[in-house]
């Protein structure tokens, strides 16, 4: 689709700028991935989401 960026592309570029937060969140889940429950890593996730929201807004 020329001339138009798909929302998923915008999402991907914004997420790519938050690699530190992404990996921190992933590591938190992986500590005990046989025993994941809701909001197990909510603090790390919120940090990741804040970073994503900030980078998405910047442009």
């Amino acid at each position: 689709m020329p001339g138009r960026t798909r929302p998923i592309d915008k999402f991907a570029t914004a997420v790519a700028k938050c690699s530190a937060e992404t990996s921190a969140y992933g590591k938190c889940i992986l500590v005990d991935y046989n025993n994941v429950s809701k909001d197990k890593c909510v603090t790390e996730f919120m940090r990741l989401k804040d970073c994503y929201l900030a980078t998405a807004k910047k442009r």
Binding site: F11, S23, A24, G26, I29, F45, K49
Partner: peptide, 15 residues
């Protein structure tokens, strides 16, 4: 959901 996509990206990368 975007939240899930965001989380899956992190887990995929680490795992």
């Amino acid at each position: 959901q975007r939240d899930v996509l965001l989380a899956a990206e992190g887990i995929y990368r680490e795992l």
